[in-house]
């Protein structure tokens, strides 16, 4: 039973205020959002920080929802994903992790690199270009989620891919939202 204490310690050390591990649906998304909102409310967080955190959480959670159906039940990889939000003195840290098909790693990697290479004006231009010229994907995504996360947070997106099997990698993404109103 030591794992209970270990897990507890890790969560405390990392100042994680909310962790969800499992399948992601719109209902779960709403529940997670409302828990995180209530948490920030009870801590008296500033409304503009709350809005940014809410914003990034929605894009993260809906990204996972939209891509969860790529899961192949024969692939021997779980389609469960993880969502975490941590609160530090200076910042909120929103982290997600979910399995993705290895063949998608390269394009995802270059998309995130491209976003990270842009400054505020560059991100704005990219956003406007995608919203004007892009169509909704069959999953209903606008292709704007990562761009929006970078814009709202004002920080680079951190990401990582860990091999799971021949076909699958585990994609981790971290977004930091400063609490000190730094642009």
């Amino acid at each position: 039973m030591k794992y209970v204490y270990d897990l507890h310690t890790i969560l405390l050390q990392r100042n994680l205020i909310l962790v969800y591990e499992g399948e992601f649906t719109q209902e779960i998304t709403k529940a997670v959002l409302s828990m995180a909102e209530r948490n920030m409310e009870s801590m008296g967080e500033e409304s503009n920080i709350k809005r940014k955190v809410f914003n990034v959480m929605v894009e993260c959670l809906q990204n996972i929802c939209k891509h969860a159906d790529e899961y192949d039940p024969d692939a021997q990889v779980t389609n469960k994903a993880i969502f975490m939000i941590g609160k530090q003195e200076e910042e909120y840290v929103i982290t997600t992790g979910n399995p993705i098909l290895k063949q998608k790693v390269d394009s995802l990697h270059s998309k995130l690199e491209q976003i990270n290479s842009l400054d505020k004006e560059g991100l704005k231009a990219l956003y406007k270009d995608i919203i004007k010229n892009g169509d909704l994907s069959e999953k209903g995504g606008a292709g704007l989620g990562f761009v929006d996360m970078a814009r709202k947070s004002g920080q680079k997106l951190e990401f990582d891919f860990q091999p799971m099997t021949d076909q699958w990698s585990f994609f981790s993404l971290k977004t930091t939202i400063p609490r000190t109103g730094v642009e």
């Binding site: 809410f54 929605v58 004007k132 606008a142 704007l144 929006d148």
Partner: peptide, 12 residues
Amino acid sequence: EYFNTASSKLIL
């Protein structure tokens, strides 16, 4: 009060 990126496309 808030809209997600998929909604922004539809708002346009």
